[in-house]
C-alpha cells in the first residue's frame, strides 16, 4: 500500500475561481469514448488489468455470510484458471483490488478472505451510507467500528448539504475528522456527484476532499439516480491533476455505479490514461466499484481465448 496522502491546509483560493463548462465537458466525454479503443490481445490484457482495479462490491439489504463468502472467493479467483493459463497470465496473481461491503459484513469478509488465504483488503462503506444523513458522532463511530472489524479501506459519503450550501470549511473539517477516525485505513470519499447540482460543485467538492486528506475520491454510492458518468469523471480527474500539480500528491480515483460491461471498463481505463497518464493506472490510484462487471469481463476473456461466446453456466458465479 502506498503511503497516505495526508492532504493539505484548507486553501479556498484553489476553488474560488474555478470554471467548469458543462457543454464542453459533455462533448469531451462523448469524444473520449469514440477516439480510443483496443482490440485483440491488447483488449485481453487491458481487461485483465481492469480486473485488478475492481472493488468487488455487494451492498444489499439481504447480504449474509454465504454470499459474502462467494464474493470473496470470486475476488481471489476472478477469472477461470484455464483461461488465464491460455493467456500465460496465471502467474500474475490476478485478483480484484478489494471487496467492498457494508460495515456489518466486514467481519464476514475478513473471515472469508482469511479462509481463502488471501490478503485482499476489505473495504467498508461507512458514515450513514448512502445518504449521509445521520449525526456526525454516529458517522465517526461507524468508521472506527469498521476499522476495528478489520476494514483497511473506508468509503465515506459526504454530507451533500454542505456542498449545496457552500459550507466548504465545514466540509473540509468533516472529512478531516473522517480521515482521523480512519487511522491507518485508506479513506475513499464518495462525493455522490449525482446530487451535487453542477459540475463546478463536483470540482470544488473534489478539491476539498483531497485537501482534507482523502486517498481516493469516488464518484457515487451507486444508490443515486445518476451514477458514474464520464462528464463527472473528467471534472474529478482534472481536479486530481490540478491537486497533483499544486501539491505533488497523487490522489486516487474510483468511479462506482453503473459500470457493467467490459467495454465500459476499457473506456474508463483509457479515460484515466488520457486525462492523468499511465502512472494512475494501478490499483493504488484507480479502482472501479462494481459487482456485475467482473462477469462480463470474464465472458470477454473466454471469447478471446476460445473464440466462442460463453454460456452463463460456463463461468462460476460470484
Amino acid at each position: 500500500m502506498a503511503a497516505h496522502t495526508r492532504g493539505t491546509e484548507l486553501e479556498l483560493s484553489w476553488i474560488s475561481k474555478v470554471q467548469v463548462n458543462q457543454p464542453a465537458v459533455l462533448r469531451r466525454a462523448q469524444q473520449i469514448q469514440a477516439r480510443r479503443t483496443v482490440k485483440k490481445e491488447w483488449q485481453a490484457a487491458w481487461l485483465l488489468k481492469a480486473v485488478t482495479f475492481i472493488d468487488l462490491t455487494t451492498l444489499s439489504g439481504d447480504d449474509t455470510f454465504s454470499n459474502i463468502q462467494r464474493l470473496c472467493y470470486k475476488a481471489k479467483y476472478p477469472i477461470r484458471e484455464d483461461l488465464l493459463k491460455a493467456l500465460n497470465m496465471h502467474d500474475k496473481g490476478i485478483t480484484t483490488a478489494a471487496v467492498c461491503v457494508y460495515p456489518a459484513r466486514v467481519c464476514d469478509a475478513v473471515k472469508a478472505l482469511k479462509a481463502a488465504g488471501c490478503d485482499i483488503p476489505v473495504a467498508s462503506v461507512a458514515t450513514g451510507f448512502p445518504a449521509g444523513q445521520t449525526h456526525l458522532k454516529t458517522r465517526l463511530e461507524e468508521i472506527r467500528l469498521a476499522v476495528e472489524d478489520g476494514a483497511s479501506e473506508i468509503d465515506v459519503v459526504i454530507d451533500r448539504s454542505l456542498v449545496l450550501t457552500g459550507q466548504w470549511e465545514a466540509l473540509y473539517d468533516e472529512i478531516r475528522q473522517f480521515r482521523k477516525a480512519c487511522g491507518e485505513a485508506h479513506l475513499k470519499t464518495i462525493l455522490a456527484t449525482g446530487e451535487l447540482g453542477s459540475l463546478t460543485n463536483v470540482y470544488k467538492a473534489s478539491m476539498i476532499a483531497m485537501m482534507a486528506g482523502s486517498d481516493f475520491i469516488k464518484t457515487s454510492t451507486g444508490k443515486e439516480t445518476v451514477n458514474a458518468t464520464f462528464p463527472v469523471a473528467i471534472v474529478m480527474l482534472r481536479a486530481i491533476r490540478d491537486f497533483f500539480w499544486k501539491t505533488g500528491n497523487k490522489v486516487g480515483f474510483k468511479p462506482a455505479g453503473g459500470i457493467r460491461t467490459a467495454k465500459d471498463s476499457l473506456a474508463w481505463l483509457s479515460l484515466i490514461k488520457e486525462e492523468l497518464g499511465d502512472e494512475w493506472l494501478k490499483p493504488e490510484l484507480f479502482r472501479i466499484g462494481a459487482s456485475s462487471l467482473l462477469t462480463d469481463i470474464e465472458r470477454q476473456i473466454y471469447h478471446h481465448v476460445t473464440g466462442r461466446y460463453a454460456a452463463y453456466h460456463d463461468l462460476p458465479m460470484s
Binding site: 493467456l87 499511465d278 493506472l281
Partner: peptide
C-alpha cells in the same frame, strides 16, 4: 498480452 498487461499501451 503478458507485456501489455504491464505497460498498458495502445
Amino acid at each position: 498480452a503478458h507485456e501489455i498487461f504491464t505497460t498498458l499501451e495502445y
